[in-house]
């Protein structure tokens, strides 16, 4: 168990972060150069003000018409994404690990808050899964990769929740938790989870086209 733990909490963390950060940079740089070669229009029409205007409307809950039309989905989407980002960054146990390794630290959530937020992430994943299985328009678009991606996202939270409560198989679960977190980090640049890094670009571009060229709203 020591060898495994030392690996997933040592070299594997490096591998995960290098692939995550390097992968994101690679995706962004290769996209930018591809755009320069094939879609120069993107540069010609990108407009900072209108890009931000559009992004702003799409990152505040119920800021767009479609969000108001789908209140349940909006609620879950926002709760999910906020918790998904905040829990790993501000979990006490994680902050302590950063402190240990790099002697840096920042504010953290109380354990009970983090616990609830983790449950929100898990509940949202279940909601997304049920939605995917039951709504015909979503089901039609679904393939195996959608379930894999959902599993990749849910796994660190389920295992983390389990490990925090020190239920049966604590040691194995913690190792799985670390490993699944690393898998998720690596998957971000190389799967459709890349929407995390591409959102500002696609939204910003559509916002620029609508705002600066077409003089219209896009929310």
């Amino acid at each position: 168990m020591h060898g495994l733990y030392n690996f997933v909490s040592g070299p594997m963390v490096w591998i995960a972060f290098i692939l995550f950060i390097g992968g994101c940079l690679y995706r962004l740089v290769s996209l930018a150069s591809l755009a320069k070669e094939k879609d120069t229009a993107v540069y010609a029409y990108m407009d900072f003000y209108y890009a931000l205007r559009s992004i702003f409307h799409w990152i505040i809950p119920f800021g767009s018409e479609n969000m108001r039309r789908q209140p349940l989905m909006t609620l879950f989407t926002f709760a999910f994404h906020i918790c998904l980002i905040c829990v790993p960054l501000f979990l006490f146990a994680h902050v302590v690990l950063w402190k240990e390794s790099w002697n840096i630290s920042w504010g953290f959530l109380s354990d009970s808050t983090a616990d609830v937020m983790t449950l929100i992430v898990i509940a949202s994943c279940i909601f997304f899964l049920v939605r995917r299985l039951t709504r015909p328009e979503v089901k039609f678009l679904t393939n195996r990769s959608d379930f894999i991606i959902l599993a990749i996202v849910a796994a660190p939270f389920i295992t983390g929740f389990w490990a925090y409560h020190q239920w049966a198989g604590y040691r194995m679960m913690l190792i799985l938790h670390i490993l699944s977190g690393e898998i998720m980090l690596i998957a971000i640049p190389f799967s459709r989870l890349s929407h995390a890094i591409f959102f500002p670009l696609t939204r910003g571009y559509m916002g620029s086209e609508f705002g600066a060229v077409k003089n219209a709203k896009d929310w």
């Binding site: 979503v138 393939n143 991606i149 459709r192 670009l201």
Partner: peptide, 10 residues
């Protein structure tokens, strides 16, 4: 990017 970003949410 359009193909890679679509999360099939419907």
């Amino acid at each position: 990017v359009y193909v890679d970003t679509c999360v099939h949410c419907g």
